[in-house]
Computed example of a mutant assay.
Amino acid sequence: MGSRTGGVPLTPPEFEWPRCRECEGPMQFLAQICLADADPGSTGLLSVFMCQNEPGLCEEWDATAGGNSAFVFGSDATRAAPVPDDGVTLLDETSAIGFAQIEGYDYLGARDRWTRETRRSVPQVLGQVGGRPAWLQNDETPDCAVCDQPMSFIVQLEEGHDYRTSANFGGGGCGYGFRCRSCGDAAFLWQR
């Protein structure tokens, strides 16, 4: 149950693939993040979906408009979800997420330092887990729909290193995943 982008999500048995509230098509699975990777001692998965059936027409960038979905799954998330036959549901490629811990920097500084030290390109950075989000616009930390408290940041995702792995965050945007530690609710949004 590693953190990754793409592939088929691991879900509990009763899971139903999310559909966009606007176009009613099935959403595209983007990523699953092991909560322990972002918050040591935590268990479970954060799974993120976003509508790509009519890019730009459904409000998939907004945490509450219905064009995206995020779920926190527990230890019962062990089976590959049945993938709908219609709509745009999967990325073209699966990418395992490797981690590099760089102390003393915010995300953008750590990303720049990593690219200098490894001599690899910025698009090879898939994002960050834990820490603080590096907002491209204003802080849009969502409040939990259940308890009305600000959610905890879990992951910031970059679009990906090539067209096969890329999520569509408006061309150069970032996605942000959150969860409520108290209620188990989750949310996702993106900015460009």
Rank of each mutant, 00 (worst) to 15 (best):
G2L: 04
S3T: 07
S3I: 05
G6F: 02
G7Q: 11
V8I: 10
P9H: 00
E14M: 13
E14D: 15
E14H: 13
E16M: 07
E16R: 07
E16V: 06
E16Q: 04
R21K: 15
R21V: 14
C23S: 10
E24S: 15
G25K: 14
G25E: 14
L30V: 14
A31N: 00
L35A: 00
D39G: 09
G41F: 04
T43E: 15
T43G: 10
L45R: 04
S47Y: 04
F49Q: 01
C51Y: 06
N53T: 02
N53V: 03
P55D: 15
P55E: 13
L57Y: 09
C58W: 07
C58G: 10
E59Q: 13
E60F: 04
E60A: 11
A63I: 01
A63N: 05
T64R: 02
G67N: 10
N68F: 08
A70M: 09
F71K: 04
F73W: 07
F73S: 04
G74Y: 09
G74P: 07
D76W: 02
T78A: 12
R79L: 06
R79P: 04
A80F: 11
A80H: 12
V83H: 12
V83K: 05
V83W: 05
D86F: 03
D86T: 11
V88F: 06
T89D: 13
D92N: 09
E93N: 07
T94V: 14
A96Y: 07
A96K: 06
G98F: 10
F99A: 03
Q101D: 14
Q101H: 15
Q101A: 14
E103D: 15
Y105N: 14
Y105R: 15
Y105F: 15
D106W: 13
Y107L: 12
Y107C: 11
L108I: 05
L108W: 07
A110N: 00
A110I: 00
R111C: 05
R111G: 08
T115W: 01
T115G: 05
R116L: 15
E117Q: 08
T118D: 08
R119T: 10
S121E: 13
S121P: 06
S121V: 12
P123N: 08
Q124R: 12
Q124C: 12
L126D: 01
L126N: 06
G127D: 08
Q128V: 11
G130V: 09
G131L: 06
P133D: 04
L136P: 03
Q137D: 13
N138L: 02
N138C: 03
D139Y: 03
E140R: 13
T141V: 09
P142Q: 08
D143R: 01
D143Q: 01
D143T: 03
D148W: 13
Q149T: 05
P150A: 04
P150N: 09
S152L: 14
S152G: 08
F153P: 01
V155T: 05
E158M: 08
E158V: 03
E159G: 04
G160D: 00
G160P: 00
D162K: 08
T165L: 07
N168I: 05
N168A: 10
F169R: 01
G171F: 10
G172N: 14
G173N: 09
G175A: 11
Y176R: 08
G177Y: 03
G177H: 01
F178I: 02
R179I: 00
G184I: 00
G184P: 02
A186V: 13
A187F: 08
F188I: 09
W190N: 11
Q191F: 05
Q191M: 07
